[in-house]
Each structure stands twice: as C-alpha cells, then as structure tokens.
Computed example of a mutant assay.
Amino acid sequence: MEWVLHRSYYPKGTHGVLQVHGRFVCFCMEQPWQDNLKNVSCIPEGRYEVLPRL
C-alpha cells in the first residue's frame, strides 16, 4: 500500500494532504523546513518504509 503526501511550504509551516490510492485521507501540518534540524524542521521529502509498532 502506498501513501502519498502532497505538501505546500510556507515560512510559518508546511501544509499537506495525505492520500491512499488517490483518495483523500486527511490534512497534515508540520513545522516549516529548517534544514532538517531536530524538533524544528518538517520531515525531509523522500520514500519511507513504515512498519507497525509492536
């Protein structure tokens, strides 16, 4: 199953729309991009494997 996050970047935050198989799931909000600084920046773009937490 592939989840896709479409983002728009703004100085005060990152807004997104999450979709699964092209269908809307939810809106998302993250911190603005700040050179990937921990606890300050949004997650970098890329492909991630997501596993269930046991």
Rank of each mutant, 00 (worst) to 15 (best):
Y9M: 09
P44V: 03
P32C: 08
L5Y: 05
P32V: 05
E49M: 06
G16K: 01
C42M: 10
V40I: 13
R47G: 01
P32Q: 08
V40R: 08
Y48P: 04
T14W: 11
G13Q: 08
N39Q: 04
F24R: 01
D35Q: 14
P52V: 10
G22I: 04
I43L: 12
Y48K: 03
M29F: 14
H6T: 15
P11M: 07
I43C: 09
G13D: 04
V17G: 02
L5C: 10
H6P: 00
V50A: 02
Y9S: 10
I43V: 13
C28D: 10
L54S: 13
R47E: 08
Q19P: 00
V50E: 00
D35L: 09
R23Q: 15
C28I: 06
D35R: 10
Q34R: 14
S41V: 01
R47T: 14
E45M: 06
Y9V: 11
C28N: 10
R47I: 12
G46P: 02
F24D: 06
K38S: 04
V50P: 00
E49Y: 09
P44H: 07
V50Q: 00
V4H: 09
E45R: 05
H21Y: 11
V40A: 09
I43R: 10
L54V: 09
M29E: 15
V17L: 10
G16R: 02
Q34P: 00
R23G: 05
L5Q: 11
H15F: 15
F24V: 04
R7I: 08
R23L: 13
Q31M: 10
E30W: 09
V50M: 01
L54F: 14
V20C: 13
V17S: 08
G16T: 02
H15M: 11
P52Q: 10
W33R: 07
H21A: 15
I43E: 05
Y48L: 02
W3E: 05
V40G: 00
L5V: 15
R7A: 05
F24E: 07
C42W: 03
V25E: 06
L5P: 00
N39S: 04
Y10A: 14
V25D: 03
P44I: 03
E49T: 09
R23A: 12
C42K: 02
R47Y: 09
E45I: 03
M1D: 11
Y10S: 13
V17T: 13
G46L: 03
E49R: 06
G46C: 05
R7K: 13
S8G: 12
V17D: 05
F27E: 12
Q31G: 04
T14S: 11
L37E: 15
G22E: 07
E2I: 03
R53E: 13
V25Q: 11
F27N: 11
V20A: 12
L51D: 05
Q34D: 14
Q19F: 06
L54T: 07
M29D: 14
H15Y: 15
W33F: 15
S41F: 03
G16V: 01
Q31K: 08
H21E: 15
Y48H: 03
Q31V: 01
K38H: 06
E2R: 10
Y9F: 15
H15S: 11
Q19K: 13
E2C: 03
L5N: 08
H6A: 12
C28R: 10
G22L: 05
M29Y: 13
P52D: 11
C26A: 15
S8T: 15
Q34I: 08
V50F: 01
R47L: 08
G13N: 04
N39F: 09
R7F: 06
P32M: 07
